[in-house]
Design a protein around this nucleic acid. Structure first.
Lengths: 140, 140
DNA sequence: ATTTATGCAAACGATTTGCAATAGG
DNA sequence: CCTATTGCAAATCGTTTGCATAAAT
């Protein structure tokens, strides 16, 4: 029925998502591609991301700070969300406990999502730095 | 500094969230309270929910279908989200794997959130019903 | 030629916010 | 009284959508 046609912009958007490691927003993808594709529109990015997601070609990591975050790597894996800088990081070496799905009785489970929230190492460092700066200022 | 004052509306909002089992949205809380508190404003509901959340008095279950869902029960527990009817249900008998937090190296974990996505039992039933209806119609 | 994909800008919907009025202490 | 809280409506902001045009087949 639906005869899909090829599109350079669509390819660029998918490449961008797949090569990005930061689980970007639509806006980020747009800003990233705009310089090399000047006539790209934000609506096109949204439309294609929605289509990719519906097809299962990309995944949604959820909403952080009001913005949806996407992942070009669709194999289920846990994420770490920094509540300070809003970074979304992959958590390696831990698998989502999909076995637990069998013990869920309220419905038929399709996905099992495991997400850790906290402060990423980088933000902890910056925080420590600021604190020592503050201490030094106080001492003056 | 901040001299907090008592407020009937604030109390009603907290009671509402705590007595609700459906992990409601701000709008739902508003609609629920409006009849008994005719001069309640949606902004007040949003403001108080945000404050409760910041204080840790209530928890956010995340965003489902573009709307934030709240939980008056703050002890960590997994949820089941029905991708069909958007219901958010508690999953009993399973604890979030907080032990795994120690194995996360990219930051310092504060929360561990486990969420299952799928079709709830009720939607499965309705679906089956519709299908048999369709089959019957086709046979006519 | 036909039909999908896109740009653009307007529409949308959830949430936030500024400000004058209200109510708690 | 003083100040936190609220109602109201306008503003915000991410996302969606309608429509005329461009690109793909």
């Amino acid at each position: 029925m639906t005869a899909r046609k090829h599109s350079k912009k669509r390819d660029a958007i998918l490449d961008c998502i797949r090569s990005a490691s930061n689980h970007p927003t639509a806006e980020w993808v747009y800003a990233r591609l705009k310089p090399e594709i000047p006539d790209l529109s934000l609506g096109t990015v949204y439309r294609n991301l929605a289509a990719f997601k519906a097809e299962g070609v990309i995944a949604s990591v959820g909403t952080v700070d009001g913005m949806e975050r996407f992942d070009g790597f669709t194999h289920p894996h846990p994420h770490f969300v920094c509540t300070h800088c809003k970074a979304v990081l992959n958590v390696d070496g831990i698998d989502p406990p999909q076995e637990l799905a069998d013990r869920v009785t309220c419905g038929s489970v399709r996905d099992c999502v495991l997400t850790f929230y906290g402060i990423c190492n980088q933000c902890v460092s910056v925080d420590a730095e600021n604190n020592s700066n503050l201490l030094m200022e106080e001492q003056v």
